[in-house]
Each structure stands twice: as structure tokens, then as C-alpha cells.
Amino acid sequence: MMPLQLNQEETVTQADDRSSFEEKVIGLLDQLFGAAMRLVKNREDAEDLVAETVTKAWTSRRSLKDPENFRPWIFRILTNTFISDCRKRAVRPQTETFTENPSDAETAFSLFEELHQPFLLWWSNPEKEFLNKLLREDLEKAVDALPQLFRIVVVLSDLEGFSYHEMAGILKVPVGTVRSRLARGRGLLQKALWRHAKEAGLIKESKKSSERFYEKDKNDRL
């Protein structure tokens, strides 16, 4: 009977569809969960976010034109779901006080400039020692402390390794915006690490970076 045959075919296609979808999702689960953890900051909500993302991805799977783009596509769903969940919970996205254009004070902040001591001998490397002292927890806290707008790009770039072009597609913003958010996010992240390190006593009180900058050996800069 024709209708039955059609139904069987449909069922077979659906099953194939599902098993290839499942394979892709399971292959990306650690990454999706890792990003979700830094976005929502706790395991339970991260698991819910991933589950919601997978459900939405399945429902809108036909909107994915090029199967090669599965990874950026599902991360787009993840970030969108996160943003709309925040809105629903009336957690004001912490963007109001932040303009898109980074201020010099934020993007110019450099941990390296704070830590580097150009007059030291080559085998002494305080900035590397500092990084080696940092624990995973310290880095997590610094990422978690970033305002949402900047946290998303830092997570997508530094944790998940997406290109600027892919991030522009995920966030539906121009590449220039990705660049400026990333620069600002990284500046803020380094500032947070610096603050944390000072509080935790990882570094001794030092001179202001500006003072150090100007006293830097002029021959050291080209």
C-alpha cells in the first residue's frame, strides 16, 4: 500500500537524520557544556542550557544549509538561547553601562606591562611565573566576572577557538564589533586577573604600569 510505504520511508529517513544529528551533538557535547558553564556559571543551569539548545537545534535543523557549519550553527543557538533566557529571567544583560567602543583604559590594560621587568636577567621571568601560579579556578573566576557581552566573545574565541568571521556569524554582528568586544573583554579579563592576584597575594605591590612604562629601558623598545 502506497501510504504505508511512504510512512516507512519517512520513518527510515527520520531515523537516519536523528542518528547523524545525535552523533554530531554527542561529539560536541563537552565543548557545548564548557561554553555553557562559563555563560551560566553553574553545572545545573549549564546542563539545562545544553538540553534546551539541542532541542531547538533539532527543531530547526532544516535551517542549517551547509552541514559543514554545524558547529558554529549550534553555538549560535546556544548563545541566543542564553541571551533570551537572561532576558526572560529579567536579568538585565549588563550591557547598558558598556558602550561598544572600548575605552583606552580598558583595552590598554595589560597584565604583561604590569608584571614585566625589563631590567631582569633573561632567566628571570616574573610574568611567566605569575601565569604558572594561576589556578584553573582563578581563570574561571576572571571569565565569570566579565560582563555578558564581552564574556560571550571571550568564551567563543579563547575557549572554543572560533574565528572572527565565525563569531560574527554566530552573534550576527560585523567583524569589527567582534574585534572590539574581544579587545575589551581581554583587557577586562586581564584586569580581573591582576586584581585577583593582588588580593590573593600572588604578587607583591608594584609600581603603576604607567610609571614602569616610562622608566622602561628605551633601548628595549623599538
Binding site: 538540553a51 571569565v143 571571550v154 572554543e160
Partner: peptide, 29 residues
């Protein structure tokens, strides 16, 4: 320095999915 910090961030962001989430996703699918 920036390269090392980037690597450390990447490593810090790695999470292992617990068996429960994998099971939940499979059940969902």
C-alpha cells in the same frame, strides 16, 4: 605571555560532561 595566557584559558575552559547529561541528551533525542 599572551600566547601562554590564551593556552591556559583554553585549558581552563575544558569541561567533561558528566554521564548524566550525556544520558539526558540521548533520551531527549
Amino acid at each position: 605571555f599572551e600566547k601562554l595566557l590564551k593556552t591556559q584559558l583554553r585549558e581552563a575552559g575544558r569541561e567533561m560532561v558528566g554521564a548524566s547529561l550525556e544520558k539526558r541528551i540521548k533520551t531527549l533525542l
